[in-house]
Design a protein around this nucleic acid. Structure first.
Length: 112
DNA sequence: TGAATGACTCGAT
DNA sequence: GATCGAGCCATTC
């Protein structure tokens, strides 16, 4: 519970909040962007704690490397994640993003 | 303090 | 090409 320095979680939240509307990213991409490509699991941990944060963290825009809504079960309602994605124009079928390659957004490629 | 956990990823079979 | 197993690292019990 360190508070002085930027927590690993906060950095993750920061990146997730940078994800453009209608786009998604992966845990690995975030981890890699933070310089901890091998800590992709920590990104998942961070998301688990993202509930109730202000400002809200668009955790629904974060999926695993194959575009699967691996974390939808952790939402208030399992259907919430898919519903949010679809509302942003992202096609989801069987808990998986269809046009994943098209909507994928890599924080490392963000336009500075 | 040590062991277990996790919304992942990659490499090998 | 699909499936299985090990690695990785911070947080939690």
């Amino acid at each position: 519970m360190s508070k002085e320095k930027y927590d690993f979680y906060e950095r993750v939240f920061d990146v997730v909040r940078l994800v453009p509307h209608g786009r998604v990213t992966t845990y690995g991409a975030i981890a890699k962007f933070l310089g901890a490509s091998k800590s992709s699991r920590l990104v998942g941990w961070a998301m688990n704690r993202s509930h109730g944060l202000i400002p809200t963290v668009p955790a629904h825009r974060v999926v695993n490397r194959v575009g699967l809504l691996s974390g939808k079960a952790h939402f208030s309602n399992p259907t919430e994640m898919q519903r949010l994605l679809e509302s942003e124009g992202i096609q989801v079928k069987d808990d998986q993003i269809i046009n994943f390659y098209d909507v994928f957004w890599d924080p490392a490629l963000m336009d500075l």
